[in-house]
Design a protein around this nucleic acid. Structure first.
Lengths: 207, 207
DNA sequence: AGTTTCATATGATAATTATCATATGAAATA
DNA sequence: TATTTCATATGATAATTATCATATGAAACT
């Protein structure tokens, strides 16, 4: 039996409660940040009282750790949108599907790098290591999508270039979405999103 | 007489106290964020008690507003580092002088866009408007540095391109510095900074 | 059925924090 | 010098919050 297939009814109920707590926490973490995430609120939104919380998590830090991990629920969906035949096209797809108004307006469902980088930067080594692991995972996936195909053993230098390209892609996406969320004028906000999409694949756009 | 030249000794002393409060708050805001900035701590670090605080600021929100504005103290210094003859070189300078280990390790002296975007995104319309104003100011300065010279009236399309280029420059810088602060491994962190610098001016680096 | 287990609830505690009312003592002014 | 002003300090209050001790009631097991 796996941890996802509890035997008794009570265990199943407990697992569901924990799942609800984690889902609420993962969304609240991205929307409000770790400091404004309150165990009272999360528990209440999950349909529990604050006392029940400690039957599921050791403490707030424990919750935050698991909630952060759960916050990568939509990474695969995003990566799957990059389905075009060429690397350049796939890069443009990744950027275009990241820098959307929906993503900007709903951080609770969005990228955990953008939502949590600031929090994690102020946290401890454990949190940074967890962030690093997730970031490396995403980078590896993006690098694949930016590479021509199963690249042979010859192109070592090119792979280095692709590494930097993948990092820059994520840096630009994270920076742009954060800036777009921090301004008031919707048109200006949109122009921040659009700027990255415009330059994405083609440095000399129309020509 | 300006607001910086108080007449009486008491007024001067009060101004100095407010300056200390603002300086401490501006640094704390960038280092810890608005939520973890406590009026007690800021007042104490400025050599005052918490009670004295309210003789200088209406409330915490008022302090945060002024502290955010004060957090752009080093913008001119940064922009002045872009002194090379060509736009491409100046772009590379801006990026290289932003994405440094010192900047990464000392957010309290660094870019307020990177330090506060996350906070402001969760704040109200007033805060977003203030952020927007500062961002537009920086963008205008960067656009100048990225343009060939006093561009004549002819190049309208080019100016649009430069607008997007300036936005992307700041997006990438903000994203990269935030990511570099959120990972544990110093080498990996460095590679995040370096990636943007490498690609900065020259898409085909060494060739 | 009787007993045990345990998921959740209730209630309490301690810490932090923003804010304000009032006190104090020194500078400004008459 | 006497009086007023006011920059700062002291002390109090109310709200929020993390955490834990204990209670409860239903499921699980004998």
């Amino acid at each position: 039996m796996t941890s996802h297939a509890p035997t008794t009814q009570r265990a199943a109920q407990k697992q569901e409660s924990k799942n609800r707590l984690l889902r609420v926490a993962s969304r609240t973490l991205r929307k409000l940040g770790s400091t404004k995430l309150s165990i009272n609120d999360v528990s209440a939104q999950a349909g529990l009282t604050h006392g029940a919380f400690y039957a599921h998590f050791k403490n707030k830090k424990d919750l935050l750790r698991q909630a952060f991990h759960a916050a990568f629920d939509h990474r695969d969906t995003w990566l799957a949108t990059a389905s075009a035949p060429t690397p350049k096209q796939r890069k443009a797809q990744l950027i275009a599907n990241y820098l959307t108004p929906e993503h900007r307006d709903h951080p609770e469902n969005g990228c955990a790098f953008a939502a949590c980088a600031h929090d994690i930067a102020k946290a401890g080594a454990e949190e940074k290591s967890a962030f690093e692991t997730e970031l490396k995972t995403s980078l590896a996936r993006v690098e694949e999508l930016l590479s021509e195909a199963k690249l042979g053993a010859k192109s070592r230098e090119k792979s280095e270039n692709e590494k930097a390209e993948a990092i820059n892609l994520i840096s630009t996406c994270v920076g742009a979405i954060l800036l777009s969320r921090a301004v008031e004028d919707p048109h200006f906000s949109q122009s921040i999103l659009t700027a990255a999409r415009d330059i994405s694949g083609a440095p000399n756009k129309g020509k």
